[in-house]
Design a protein around this nucleic acid. Structure first.
Length: 871
RNA sequence: GCCGCUGUGGUGGAAUUGGUAGACACGUUGGACUUAAAAUCCAAUGAGACUUAAACUCUCGUACCGGUUCGAGUCCGGUCAGCGGUACCA
């Protein structure tokens, strides 16, 4: 009992915190400054917590505890993003209702989180599947609907046959589903869409004002994809109609030698000539059935067919052929382009393949060899008609000139386009929020607020029908509804909302989880918002964070929230990889081979090696004593690789404080880093040493060690303590937890040598340790007989006067090379003459300086001395 | 291809933001304690040269090449590698 035993200490304090509601947030005292520190809430999967969760959660917990000790009123909540596919798929397999699975998983997650000692206010837990919660998700949908931001669409969507549902653009990666990697095809279906494009400009502008990682901001900007250009009308040679194109390079209009329509463009059937009908139809049919994956794979090989029709280039009256090709997308711009093969790579490839004319209109390259695409310094050529000439102008000026001319002739105008599309907001699933929508006389109609929440019906089977009919279509009693307004018979909407819906606004619900007058209590919202710190994985860079910003802005417009942006500061924790693995490869003959220069290693057999079977030579690892290179790499944790670390096991072996400390000590929070069990042992040893400062482990009782006394601290002790306080305070503020921990290690190494440990110093250390390793801190705090609640004690202040040394040590350089060290009294440290005189007396320095001509003497007070001599 | 980030000992990582590179930790080696082991404690530990040995000293060293500077891990230009995002967006 006398040695450090986390399995006894930790449950005791966890129970104490829960029982006493130590971390309950009381907002009645609004005189205190507020701090809202938020974690991305987890999906409570059946697998339980993995080590990635406690990384961000420990970081926010340290901040929360630190802020409490600094007099802030802290809101630090947690909840469950509990709708979603796994529970539904489990239901399909076993017949267990997703609500049951979900509840079980939540209970397990809660237990696991409490076992790590996070200081959440457990009275504010939210659960997206709770009708009291999703009532307000539905309510927010009604606000969107009211504002014309929710609408039905019958356009082709991303249908994933394997998942039996449609997916949002953001959920499709390389033509495959983000979840599971299944192929996705395009299929026209009735869907609900949210008009996020109406907010594109604000989503883009306001990103500048938030304190987020630049990479995430850039990703969002790219996703929104604003491009400025012009729309230009081309009249048809044989029809009295126009085709409008969007281009970012109106300056190249004179070089437009053909035109391409998307196969889905409505004018295709109108303009196609008789002899081309068959070929065009065949091409259209092929394009329609092509999956996104096929389109991506064939991207390098351009395809298309000629329609037989011609358009007229408005600047030079030339007739140019109109083609259709699937490299032009109906969903972007106008679904039609003017092709300028001289200055656009795609158009160039297409023109080469189909032998179309290539004209140079911007000089600087050789357009027969490759498209010349410099859009800054290129100079326009061959670009003049009777009224206008761009010749000699650089691209930006040429653009402006031609746009003005087009506008004056009513042939086109300046135009802005966004890559962002409307958000496909419905899923053909069971385990999601039902829409507050009914269909009467074939028309969708919103139910009014008093009918909320719309709860899920019991169903026999959770399988989608496969034709796109959601499982809810099978719940006949639920499906049929009498319109409360007109008394007509109607049908409920059978789609459900995507998982993102619940996570779009959960941070608001934490503020007033029981409020019945709206999603959030307006008074409290004004006090707590915005979120001061939001920590989570970078995988949500565009999806969740863009959707949540969109909803927040809608709620802002509706007067529900008072801030323009929800999350002031965002930090992405880096992924934790598995332990470093050393792998060599054997060929079919069983010989070790080098993988260098091989495209594929599929035919080789990997052989795992232990650390002491390998050695490093130069930049590469080899099998010891051989020339066989070894791959040294940390991999993503995955079940199939068998390198998953379970936090429960770590806690069993080393305790929660060690888990917390190790995850923070590994390296910078934002960085990707490999797990190391030995590293856990390192911090465990540190905690043991720290505990042993307080408790003598050679005796059989857990009493305070006799070296801890009421005593005046020595100068050295004060210096050690205040160095620690300064470093930890600054590092927490900058989220540099790894170096804060190393400062604590330095302190403990020091203090272990003290024969007398003044209780005042040891109290301060316990306080500093508390945010990081709260269990052991509480334990020693109690041992010292402290009655005050540790979590709310005042964070110790450092006093610079204890940090001053009697001496300063200068590094003395000669010609930039270190040649000696000079210890000098602090009083003389700023005196250039004294320092230099002394420096030149140093043996190592004199060797180089004596007899040489001194060219220059660099003296930077309390930094460096550099004497420059001529050789 | 494009955009972004990162390259420091055997390993994870420090470095006052241009000023003594390698803090702290892991690992390794040696030692103490122990009947022994575990635990704990102490010491050494970037590479190399010189030396019988040690001390001393010196050289090289922050992916690579070059530049700016009294001085560069840090700033600038170029190259390479890895990671993440994105990709016919006109």
């Amino acid at each position: 009992m006398s040695t450090y035993n986390p399995s006894q200490i930790e449950p005791k304090w966890q129970e104490y915190w829960v029982k006493n509601k130590t971390f309950k947030t009381d907002e009645s005292d609004r005189s205190k400054p507020k701090y809202y520190v938020l974690d991305m809430f987890p999906y409570p999967s059946g697998a339980g917590l993995h080590v990635g969760h406690p990384e961000g959660y420990t970081a926010t917990d340290i901040i929360a505890r630190f802020k409490r000790m600094n007099g802030f009123n802290v809101l630090h909540p947690i909840g469950w993003d509990a709708f979603g596919l796994p529970a539904e798929q489990y239901a399909i397999k076993t017949g267990t209702h997703p609500a049951i699975t979900t509840q079980k998983n939540i209970d397990r997650f809660r237990k696991q989180l409490q076992a790590i000692g996070f200081s959440y206010d457990w009275d504010r837990e939210v659960n997206t599947t709770d009708p009291d919660y999703f009532k307000w998700t539905q309510w927010i949908f009604l606000q969107l609907h009211k504002r014309g931001l929710a609408y039905e669409s019958f356009a082709p969507v991303n249908w994933c046959p394997a998942l039996g549902t449609v997916l949002a653009n953001e959920e499709v990666i390389d033509g495959k589903s983000e979840v599971g990697g299944f192929p996705v095809i395009r299929k026209p279906m009735r869907q609900w869409m949210l008009k996020i494009t109406a907010y594109a400009e604000r989503l883009l502008q306001d990103i500048d004002g938030v304190d987020w990682p630049e990479s995430i901001k850039e990703m969002q900007r790219n996703w929104i994809g604003k491009s400025i250009g012009a729309e230009v009308d081309f009249s048809l040679a044989a029809h009295n109609a126009k085709i409008r194109v969007f281009t970012t390079r109106p300056d190249t209009l004179f070089g437009a030698t053909y035109m391409v329509l998307s196969p889905e463009h409505p004018l295709v059937d109108v303009i196609t000539t008789q002899e081309n009908k068959a070929a065009v139809q065949t091409y259209k049919d092929e394009a329609a059935t092509k999956s996104d994956l096929d389109r991506t794979e064939l991207a390098k090989n351009k395809t298309g067919v000629f329609t037989g029709a011609y358009a007229v280039n408005p600047v030079n009256g030339k007739q140019i052929p109109i083609w259709i090709a699937d490299y032009v997308l109906m969903g972007y711009g106008t679904g039609a382009i003017m092709a300028v093969p001289g200055h656009d790579e795609r158009d160039w490839e297409f023109a080469k393949k189909f032998d179309l004319e290539i004209v140079e209109v911007v000089s600087g390259g050789n357009v027969q060899e490759a498209a010349f695409t410099d859009n800054q310094n290129g100079v326009a050529v061959n670009s003049a008609n009777d009224e206008i000439s761009l010749n000699g102008l650089k691209v930006p000026q040429a653009k402006e000139t031609i746009i003005n001319w087009l506008e004056s002739k009513a042939l086109g105008q300046k135009s802005v386009n966004y890559r962002l599309r409307d958000w496909l907001f419905s899923r053909q699933r069971y385990w999601g929020e039902p829409f507050p929508i009914i269909h009467v006389d074939g028309e969708p109609k919103a139910l009014s607020e008093e009918h909320l929440p719309i709860t899920l019906p019991k169903v026999e089977s959770y399988e989608p029908t496969g034709t796109g009919e959601p499982p809810l279509a099978k719940a006949e009693d639920w499906l049929k509804i009498t319109d409360p307004e007109t008394g007509k018979e109607g049908l409920r909407e059978t789609n459900t909302m995507p998982q993102w819906a619940g996570s779009c606004w959960y941070y608001l619900r934490y503020i007033s989880p029981n409020y019945q007058g709206g999603p959030v209590d307006p008074e409290l919202e004004k006090y707590w918002m915005p979120v001061d710190l939001y920590v989570g994985g970078a995988e949500h860079a565009v999806l969740h964070l863009l959707y949540a910003r969109f909803w927040h802005k809608v709620l802002f417009d509706a007067g529900i929230v008072s801030t323009n942006e929800p999350f002031q500061k965002l930090i992405n924790q880096g992924m934790i990889l598995g332990e470093m693995e050393y792998t060599a490869f054997k060929n079919e003959a069983g010989e070790f081979v080098s993988t260098k220069g091989l495209d594929s290693i599929d035919h080789l057999t990997p052989v795992k090696l232990s650390e002491d079977e390998v050695e490093k030579k130069g930049d590469t690892f080899f099998i010891k004593g051989t020339q066989t290179p070894v791959e040294a790499k940390s991999h993503k944790m995955s079940k199939s690789r068998g390198n998953v670390i379970n936090p429960d096991d770590v806690i069993d072996q080393y305790g929660a404080d060690s888990l917390r400390l190790y995850e923070m000590f590994m390296g910078p929070l934002e960085q990707v880093k490999p797990w190391s069990m030995r590293g856990v042992e390192g911090v465990y040893r540190f905690l043991k040493r720290a505990y042993r400062l307080y408790v003598n482990d050679e005796v059989e009782t857990s009493e305070l060690d006799s070296t801890i006394k009421e005593a005046n601290p020595s100068k050295e002790q004060l210096k050690a303590l205040h160095t620690l306080i300064k470093k930890v305070t600054e590092d927490i503020t900058e989220f540099k937890f790894n170096t804060a921990i190393s400062a604590m290690m330095v302190f403990v190494n020091d203090a272990a040598k003290w024969e007398v440990k003044p209780i005042s110093v040891m109290k301060s250390f316990a306080q500093v340790l508390n945010p990081f390793a709260p269990h052991v801190a509480e334990e020693v705090w109690a041992l010292m007989g402290q009655k005050e609640e540790l979590s709310y004690t005042k964070w110790p202040a450092f006093d610079a006067k204890y940090l001053v040394d009697d001496e300063f040590t200068y590094g003395i350089q000669v010609n930039g090379k270190l040649r000696g060290e000079l210890k000098i009294a602090m009083a003389d440290a700023d005196n250039k003459d004294i320092v230099l005189t002394e420096a030149k007396k140093l043996e190592g320095v004199a060797k180089y300086v004596d007899g040489a001509e001194i060219v220059k003497e660099i003296f930077v007070p309390k930094r460096i001395v550099n004497i420059v001599v001529k050789a």
